[in-house]
Write a protein that binds this DNA or RNA. Sequence first.
DNA 1: CGGAGCTTTGAATGTATTCAAACGCCGTGG
DNA 2: CCACGGCGTTTGAATACATTCAAAGCTCCG
Lengths: 216, 216
Amino acid sequence: MRAIAARRDLIREGESPHFVYLLLDGWACRYKTLADGRRQIVSFLLPGDIFDAGFLLLGKIDHGIAAITPIRVGGIGRDDFEALLEACPKIAKALWRGERIAASIQREWTLNVGQRTAFERLSHLLVETFLRLESVGLTNGQSCDWPPTQADLADATGLTAVHVNRMLQELRRSGLIALNGRALTIPDMAALKQAALFSAAYLHLAPRPGRTGEGA
Amino acid sequence: MRAIAARRDLIREGESPHFVYLLLDGWACRYKTLADGRRQIVSFLLPGDIFDAGFLLLGKIDHGIAAITPIRVGGIGRDDFEALLEACPKIAKALWRGERIAASIQREWTLNVGQRTAFERLSHLLVETFLRLESVGLTNGQSCDWPPTQADLADATGLTAVHVNRMLQELRRSGLIALNGRALTIPDMAALKQAALFSAAYLHLAPRPGRTGEGA
DNA sequence: CGGAGCTTTGAATGTATTCAAACGCCGTGG
DNA sequence: CCACGGCGTTTGAATACATTCAAAGCTCCG
């Protein structure tokens, strides 16, 4: 069990991975950087997500994991983890499934930054993240807590913070979202999905917005 | 065992996955499309690659797999595959590792389309693909077969075919590549890696003795 | 020889970036 | 209590990178 302050790294690029983590509380992100400092957030990690950084691959890891809010994580060491996998194949299978869902989301992100316009891109990120939060019971009707800064959204969408700001204004003006401080509201999810060219299949969420434990 | 002609789909979006495939011969790609037809290639599949389309996830699949050249694939059905995994945990582990490497590459693609300029992006795609070909013995010194069209490269990099064309010309002019018909030559891999801001860690290739220019 | 598919070229346009500065909010310290 | 500073957001103008549209050229194959 570990606690990390907001804006600090849980894992830095270049370290060797020794743990698999469960995110208990807070938001984090996986990111990659280029030599000159350009940074891409490649996924958001939300409460309930299980993640690691190239655990089975050994070698140096190629990306970092940073806390967006203060977070608490539970960690399990490599040997214990391996033992667990062997002792309980059902867990192994569930973890594998979780990773495959994460991979599916990753492909969608590639599509997102590669093909969608700035407006669609942000819309899509909002929809996806809201639905993931909803699936773990962290939404409140049409609203949820929204910790990432516009700079974070810029890194996640491949845009600049300035342009993210302008697109968010447009989203507000068109009534698709309300975003006051850290409170996000999506008054008409169907409309936002349409603006985002959103198609839910890739998320592999349980059919009902009930409780699921999936992650990674 | 199945053979597919160039430019045809092996799996179409919306189908249900029933097989895991091994690509025996030729190039293929995984792609996703938006409702209005915009298309993103999310990965290239090269000989030796094992792939499927959401096999363990069930449900409808969210992407297609198309042949770039004529391909031959070996397929294994769901039940046989499950039996294999249970009978031979080492194979299961190796497959899991393979998927994790694919996921790592997918994250790099997100970085690629999100942060790199058009020139860097193409350079990176060329380096990555060449190294993957090299790792399965499909290169010939500094050269390899290069089947994808400029339209394919456009779909893979999130650029237009016109702009891909201009960037390829620039790559040729600067001496970083030679590309005549289907023959690609990279005379100075280290230089191309530098232009691409390439960093090899994410590929998790087995170290090969006698290769020039590790990483960058 | 003809045609289809791919590549190349040019000019005009547009989306997103860059740079710079001001604003607002909030916690801290004087 | 108010001033200060930091951080995140907002604004504007100029610029740059990539797109769009249109057409011509090339190459391979039937």
